[in-house]
Design a protein around this nucleic acid. Structure first.
Lengths: 135, 135
DNA sequence: GTTGACCCTGGAGCGACTCCAGGGTTTCAA
DNA sequence: TTGAAACCCTGGAGTCGCTCCAGGGTCAAC
């Protein structure tokens, strides 16, 4: 199949497919005589695998690692477990930070609920006041 | 004060201060005869303001907007409210996505808890299986 | 006089794309 | 047969918010 078909099948942008190929995450496609890329089902499978990992917010470097491991069926899978654990830790940390952020924004938002002059805006005053304490 | 002192006072990297100045978020500093930047307390206040907004994960463009609004005390503060609301929506959406991610990763991790050959690794098998359904 | 801490500029690098210019090819219909 | 739309190619620049680097200058203390 051509690049557009592959991209559509996996819900990816055409440019992204080319990017993955350039980065070596996707094996280089065959070419038609006019230079168009030709992909097979194994490309689609790998692309879907990459997208699934990306949906889990793994960086490309880790996905590359995972692919390498998967290509050596005799190796030990401890690496994979560790990788998932690291990823899980990162995600949990980010959730915590985001929730703290949410609380701060809610508190900030409650300082001003009406349309007034900027001078009297509770939000701006709050932001400014915090700045002043740091000075 | 010189750039290092300002940076230390606000817990920012020196490079970051120069970056903000170049981006026009911080007004251009005065210079000593030898070319060193000289900052006043109003610079420190604005830098702290920027950092506080960044801690709330606002993009620099929005902070720039906020600064412009704050510089016109007669304007209406509805913009500020809307900006905070947008920010809050974004953060909440990201929290939801991150939580879904966490669940997926936990489910994935539970598929393999021992050190076995990659071939039998539940995690890799799961990732591959999902890829296959997309094909 | 030399060591170390500080300052300057301009430019490159990060991650994961996304977009663009400037071309060629295929497919379909009028 | 012509022409338009949809597809494909490459190489390179742009995005965001920094961070780092090379290659220099300045200044105070020992």
């Amino acid at each position: 199949m051509r690049i557009g078909e592959l991209a559509r099948a996996c819900g990816v942008d055409v440019e992204t497919v080319r990017y993955y190929e350039k980065q070596g995450l996707l094996p280089a496609a065959h070419r038609t005589p006019n230079g168009y890329r030709l992909f097979g089902p194994q490309h689609a499978e790998r692309l879907a695998f990459i997208r699934h990992c990306r949906a889990l917010d793994m960086p490309l470097a880790e996905i590359r690692h995972l692919i390498e491991v998967a290509d050596h069926p005799d190796a030990d899978c401890g690496d994979v477990n560790a990788l998932i654990d690291t990823q899980l830790d990162k995600v949990r940390e980010r959730i915590k930070a985001m929730q703290a952020l949410e609380h701060q924004l809610v508190a900030l938002r409650s300082r001003c609920d009406s349309q007034r002059a900027v001078e009297a805006c509770g939000i701006l005053n709050e932001l400014m006041a915090v700045s002043r304490t740091v000075r």
